[in-house]
């Protein structure tokens, strides 16, 4: 536990007077996939954004490699090699796929751009075919691939993925999850995954957290959580 790459300690965040996060503790150890599941409005995406400093944590602290990043500006956090594939993808619709990927490499000063480009095209060959197409003309699945590829262009040490399966056909979602799993196994990429698709997320993850109303109610190994009756009842059998 002391080796955690990212750790959140008693983090609270507010939208005006409304508390969205009420003292969250999360540990993401290096080399693992950690997932956070929860219902709509539980505060999952807020947590993801709070790691990036918007909204800023009001109390508690966020440590990355033991360094307190709670009060760093968003772009400085990104420069620490934390990359995010945000909720709703947020690709740049009028810019081409290639330009989107260039934006992803902004923090590396383009030191190894060609190499990284080849790598993400290997992972997502579809993007190579679409390289000169505008981001907005891609299908939902391709846009999600682009969002992940863009995040990978910065050679992240920690990848934050916010609902990568959102709005995707089950088959495409499965492909996305398997890519994430491969990146973790082959390259040791640390991943923090926020998902509604509890089954896939927990199966993939080494460790899982369950969030309800801005608080962590359960945590444990991914498969272990998957076996728990409370989790099954709330997020698997009833919800799906």
């Amino acid at each position: 536990m002391s080796e955690a790459m990212l750790s959140l300690r008693g983090v609270t965040a507010y939208y005006g007077a409304i508390a969205a996060l009420k003292g969250v503790d999360i540990e993401v150890p290096a080399g693992e996939i950690v997932t956070l599941i929860g219902a709509n409005g539980a505060g999952k995406s807020t947590l993801m954004m709070t790691i990036f400093g918007a909204p800023r944590a009001r109390d508690g602290s966020i440590l990355f490699d033991g360094r307190d990043i709670t009060h760093l500006p968003t772009y400085e956090i990104a420069r620490l090699k934390i990359a995010q594939s945000p909720e709703g993808r947020r690709i740049f619709p009028r810019m081409t796929v290639l330009e989107n990927l260039q934006m992803g490499a902004a923090v590396t000063q383009f030191a190894h751009f060609d190499e990284d480009l080849r790598r993400v095209f290997d992972i997502f060959p579809r993007l190579k075919d679409r390289a000169s197409q505008r981001g907005g003309t891609l299908s939902g699945g391709e846009q999600q691939m682009l969002a992940i590829a863009r995040a990978l262009m910065s050679r992240p040490r920690l990848l934050l993925l916010d609902e990568p399966s959102l709005g995707l056909a089950p088959l495409i979602a499965k492909q996305i999850f398997s890519v994430v799993g491969e990146l973790n196994r082959n390259e040791g990429l640390t991943v923090f995954l926020v998902e509604q698709n509890a089954y896939h997320a927990l199966k993939l993850a080494h460790r899982g957290y369950v969030m309800v109303n801005g608080q962590i109610t359960m945590s444990g190994g991914g498969l272990e959580l998957l076996e728990r009756p409370e989790v099954r009842a709330a997020y698997l059998e009833g919800g799906r």
Partner: peptide, 24 residues
């Protein structure tokens, strides 16, 4: 150049820009 691309990205999506390490 990176600055010009950052302008266009800023026009498209400011939040995404910031989380990609662009000083907006």
């Amino acid at each position: 150049l990176p600055i010009g691309r950052a302008w266009e990205a800023l026009r498209e999506d400011e939040i995404a820009c910031r989380s990609l390490g662009v000083n907006t």
